[in-house]
């Protein structure tokens, strides 16, 4: 690899090894998980031989596939709604201070502060009380709530360090407010929005407790399905499904890259 001397990174010696260690730490368990998805044994932990059987089993397990599909639909919907609301809120909060700001800020992170199980039962009681039909929609509504702070905080952090003079300068140059937002603020904000959206997505994808309580008949998600296996023992089938989810994520990432390439 070419050493880029204009990059100040080389001056901070520890950084690169630390980042390498970070990615090794991150991917070591994933490697184990993928290897074991090819284990022929019914037990997840003892290697007896190579087999792709568990993929066949997983792909023919309609209940589990339906659960995985539900999880993806919920995570995408909740992420889109939460990130939009959080972006707007962050823009509104970023300018000069106002009375009651602390209260509003606390409200925006409230979903973080309450233990999941309490939120879950509370939301279910509430939905039943107001007569909401439980189903996928109710899960999406509940996920959106706890996704908002996960999207809001990175966007807000990004905005915090941004120079308001930039948008003002754009205004001075006779850009209208929408143009200033579209051409100046939004591109500058993009890394924050992307970070927030991705955090929302993975937090939604992993949620068990809230999905379990507010989901109606037919709205089982992948984590619920996997937790339900606890009593009977977890098989490499789950590893196979996890590996399939990884493939979907990689496809998803590749597509977004292609779109990026086309745009620029």
């Amino acid at each position: 690899m070419k050493i880029d001397t204009s990059n100040p990174l080389w001056r901070f010696r520890g950084i690169t090894p630390m980042a390498m260690f970070f990615f090794a730490y991150l991917y070591l368990p994933i490697l184990v998980l993928i290897v074991l998805s090819f284990n022929e044994n019914r037990l997840a932990t003892i290697w007896t031989g190579f087999s792709t059987d568990w993929y066949r089993v997983a792909l023919s397990n309609d209940d589990m596939l339906r659960a995985a599909k539900n999880s993806l639909v919920i995570a995408v919907s909740a992420t889109v709604i939460a990130t939009t609301a959080a972006t707007l809120a962050a823009l509104g909060m970023a300018r000069q201070r106002f009375r009651g700001e602390t209260g509003v800020a606390a409200m925006l992170v409230l979903p973080l502060l309450v233990p999941e199980i309490v939120t879950a039962i509370a939301t279910l009681l509430f939905f039943v009380a107001i007569g909401v039909q439980l189903g996928l929609i109710s899960v999406i509504a509940a996920h959106t709530v706890f996704c908002i702070p996960f999207a809001y905080l990175p966007i807000r952090a990004r905005l915090d360090g941004m120079d308001p003079a930039l948008a003002e300068a754009a205004n001075d140059l006779y850009a209208n407010e929408w143009q200033a937002f579209r051409r100046v603020t939004f591109p500058l904000l993009w890394p924050g929005i992307m970070s927030g959206a991705m955090l929302s997505f993975i937090i939604s994808l992993d949620d068990f407790v809230i999905s379990y309580f507010v989901g109606g008949a037919g709205a089982t998600t992948l984590p619920i399905y996997i937790f339900g296996m606890i009593r009977m023992g977890i098989t490499p089938e789950v590893n196979a499904v996890s590996a399939l989810m990884l493939i979907i994520s990689i496809v998803f990432v590749s597509i977004s890259f292609l779109i990026d390439r086309i745009r620029y």
Binding site: P29, L33, I234, N239
Partner: peptide, 26 residues
């Protein structure tokens, strides 16, 4: 940069139970 950011989140597409299992084996 974008690639690396995705790399940070990809492992979390798997389930928390499965990730913990992998750690137990390690």
């Amino acid at each position: 940069r974008n690639f690396l950011i995705f790399l940070v989140t990809i492992p979390f597409w798997t389930n928390i139970l499965v990730r913990n299992y992998a750690w137990m084996l390690l």
